[in-house]
Amino acid sequence: MFEARLLRGSILKKVLEAIKDLLTQATFDCDDSGIQLQAMDNSHVSLVSLQLRADGFDKYRCDRNISMGMNLNSVAKILKCAGDKDTVTMKAQDNADTVTFVFESPNQEKVSDYEMKLMNLDLEHLGIPETEYSCTIRMPSAEFARICRDLSQFGDSMVIACTKEGVKFSATGEIGSANIKLAQTASVDKEEEAVIIEMDEPVTLTFACQYLNYFTKATSLSPQVQLSMSADVPLVVEYRIQDIGHIRYYLAPKIED
């Protein structure tokens, strides 16, 4: 028996919004530590890694490890039927070929259940090596979303250059060029609003704007985002989900001209 109940059901709605444009299907691996999902987009350029810890759920039971392959468009359709304040419960029997989503309104007056067929997915699971990153940048997630949106008007690629002075985002295209520089916040009153840079070595890497824009669909999950970069390795864009886990996106760089 698998059962995971979340009073803050809107978290699951937001998680689906954050992955459904990048992935069409994925496997939710459940064990007694929680729910994990790792999947690459179709072009094998980016990867989503989601972790929801068991202790972040209001009720969590997983008697046997279970892997549930799901069509994410279908899951997103079902979760759209949940109210923002609903409690969401996912449950499945051992060896089941369906999963059931139960939505309960705050006053318990409306209870809905949606049963969905599971899929057998044979997806590639990549091993991600432990990496010490040369630069980590923490910044407001809404600011990062704004920068990605603004710069993608100028070109398909964005250069992210991190030095000890700050971080510069740049794009160049037919209409011209754009540069956005963010300095490290001098004094941190509200950590959520701060730009904080930890740098061992400066790093400059180029990434496809399209994927960065997909990642920013996770903005509503966290007020802050963390970018981790080292020369010639994939970028990590991490949104922490309060008290329950995180969603990390990895993006392979482009080779610079």
Partner: peptide, 14 residues
């Protein structure tokens, strides 16, 4: 393809 690299260049295949 415009210099885009793939994750399999960096991550370990099973």
């Amino acid at each position: 393809n415009d210099g885009q690299r793939f994750l399999s260049d960096f991550f370990i295949q099973p």
